[in-house]
């Protein structure tokens, strides 16, 4: 009755076996995770009194405490700016090594990528905890932490930009006998300067966010006060620390968004 035959579907396709298996696995993993993490909503109920105290005090910030945290707040921003800058300085040559489209051997960009990947696996707070053991307590350690973290992040962002670069002009210069430095300076940098600045600012934002908590493990800045006030159960002071963090992050975000828009 039909001019052509009705196609047949395999059993697997017809009953969406693959999808079913994926969903089943997810459900099993979910239940298993619930079990090993000890998720138990009734804990909310049993701890409600303590949580109530926390929320009650937090909604009553002790503004006078603000004068104590001004200095570490400033320090936090300084750590972020210096850390990001140092990280960027090291990231630029690393990005050129890792970019696939600039001609050097596969071994070079392969290894540099792998090393950069390792750098990016470590969250900054963990890095800070290790570096505090090495360099001691204080903002120097915080700055080094952020420098290493930024190095990992920026070099990836940068080499991805580099790989989108139009190599036409560079090849033309190469053909006319320009040196590699000249090529980079005249044919590549003009294409990417804007995006580089934009990524620098973005990383700065991220770093300001993380620098506010680095002090928690002793790496300088505001985080120290977060830890102190919580240990002393002074939640009305903790609230001030959190609000100050929040305000700083917001201000940096707004500034950096403004600058990034100007750059485009």
């Amino acid at each position: 009755m039909h001019t052509s035959e009705v196609p047949r579907r395999s059993f697997v396709k017809k009953y969406h076996i693959k999808g079913m298996i994926v969903i089943a696995i997810l459900i099993v993993l979910f239940l298993y995770s619930l079990k090993i993490c000890g998720v138990d909503p009734s804990l909310f109920v049993s701890n409600i009194a303590q949580f109530g105290v926390l929320i009650g005090q937090m909604s009553n910030p002790d503004w006078s405490y603000f004068s104590f945290i001004w200095d570490p707040l400033v320090q936090t921003v300084q750590m972020a700016i210096l850390g990001t800058t140092i990280g960027t300085i090291f990231a630029i040559p690393a990005a050129f090594l890792a970019a696939r489209n600039l001609d050097h051997s596969k071994v070079v960009h392969g290894t540099s990528r792998f090393v950069l990947d390792i750098f990016r696996t470590l969250p900054s707070l963990l890095l800070a905890a290790i570096l505090v053991a090495i360099f001691g307590i204080g903002p120097t350690t915080g700055t080094i932490t952020l420098a290493i973290f930024s190095f990992g992040m920026i070099s990836k962002l940068f080499y991805e930009v580099l790989e989108t670069v139009d190599m036409g002009p560079a090849e033309a210069m190469k053909a006319s006998g320009a040196s590699i430095i000249q090529i980079i300076r005249l044919a590549i940098i003009p294409q990417i300067a804007g995006q580089f600045c934009s990524f620098f600012l973005y990383t700065l934002e991220v770093n300001v966010r993380s620098s506010t908590v680095l002090g928690y493990v002793g790496a300088g800045g505001l985080g120290l006060y977060l830890q102190q006030t919580i240990d002393e159960f002074n939640y009305s002071e903790t609230a001030v620390v959190i609000l100050a963090t929040f305000a700083t992050v917001l201000v940096i975000d707004i500034l950096s968004n403004y600058l990034r828009r100007k750059l485009q």
Partner: peptide, 15 residues
């Protein structure tokens, strides 16, 4: 649906 697709010669693409 099979008939409609057959009309426009697209039955082979049903799935």
């Amino acid at each position: 649906a099979v008939r409609s697709l057959d009309h426009v010669n697209m039955l082979k693409k049903l799935y």
